[in-house]
Design a protein around this nucleic acid. Structure first.
Lengths: 131, 131
DNA sequence: CCCATAACTTACCTCGACGTAAGTGACTGA
DNA sequence: TCAGTCACTTACGTCGAGGTAAGTTATGGG
C-alpha cells in the first residue's frame, strides 16, 4: 500500500478561477492602498464629479500629495477623468467613468460584508490576543 | 444671485455608507496585501482544508515566512483555524471558517469584475502612457 | 507692490512590508 | 551516528508607500 499522498496538484493559472490571477492581485493592491476607496466613494457621494479641493475636504486627513498621486493613478487606470479649466486660480474637475462606476458594485459588496461581519473579526482578534 | 457655492459638506462618518469607514479600509488593506487572496482562494480550491506544505505548493513563489505570517493573521482574524497534530514530523492543518467562507462571496465579485474589465484598465493605461 | 487662491510638484525622511537565508526541535529510518 | 522530514522562527537587508513641509504658477484685488 502506498502511503496516502494527498498532494493535489494545482494548476497555478487556475488559482482565483481567473485567466489572470496576477490581475486580481494587482486590483486588490490598488484598491487596498491607503486612500483609493475613500476617494472613490467620496467622489460617488459627491455626485460622481468634484473638484480637487472638494475631495480634499471630503476625505479627512489626506494630504495634497497623496490626493494628487492617487487621483493620477485612478486617471491612468481609466477610473476617473480629469478636466482642467484654464482659469486663475485654476479649476480642475474629476469625474467617475463608467468603468469606475462599474467597480462600485463589487466594492459595495465588501462594504456590506464589513457592516455585517466586522464585529466577528474584532471578537476573533480579542479571543486570539488574550491567551 | 449668489454664485454657485457647490460645496456640499460631507459627514465624515457617512463616507462608505458605513458606520465604520475605517473598518472598510482595514479589510481592504488586509485583503490587498501580497499573499492573502492567493492563500484564501487556494485553500478554498483545496476543499477548505489543507496542510502548510500543501499551501506552500499551491501558492507559487511564496516563502515559508510569508505563508506563516499571513496564515497567522488570517487565524487571528477568525478566517481560518489551525489544528496541530502532535506527531513527528509535525502536521498542521488549516481550515476555513464560516466567516472566511462568507468573505469569498464579495471577493468573487471582484474576481469576476477583473475577468470582465481588466482589459479596459490595460487599455486605459496604454492610452495614458503614450502621450 | 504684495498677498491670496487652487492645484499642484518637489525634496526629504521614516517605517513597515516583504525577500533571503539559515537555524530549530523532535523523531524515524538507514 | 547521521541524514531527512515538517512547520515553523529568527536575523538581516531592501525598497517603496506614505508623511511633512515648502515651493510653484498665474492673475486679480487692495
Amino acid at each position: 500500500m502506498g502511503k496516502p499522498t494527498r498532494t493535489k496538484q494545482l494548476d497555478p493559472a487556475a488559482v482565483c478561477r481567473s485567466s489572470d490571477p496576477m490581475a486580481v492581485r494587482e486590483l486588490l493592491t490598488k484598491v487596498g492602498d491607503k486612500w483609493t476607496i475613500f476617494i472613490v466613494l467620496s467622489l460617488d457621494l459627491l455626485g460622481g464629479r468634484a473638484r480637487f479641493s472638494e475631495l480634499e475636504r471630503a476625505v479627512p486627513g489626506i494630504s495634497q500629495r497623496m490626493l494628487s498621486s492617487t487621483l493620477k493613478t485612478l486617471e491612468r487606470d481609466g477610473m476617473v477623468t480629469r478636466e482642467l479649466f484654464p482659469e486663475v486660480p485654476p479649476r480642475v474637475e474629476y469625474e467617475m467613468t463608467d468603468l469606475g462606476r462599474s467597480l462600485l458594485r463589487p466594492t459595495q459588496g465588501l462594504v456590506d460584508w464589513v457592516k455585517e461581519n466586522w464585529q466577528q473579526v474584532r471578537d476573533a482578534q480579542s479571543r486570539y490576543d488574550e491567551r
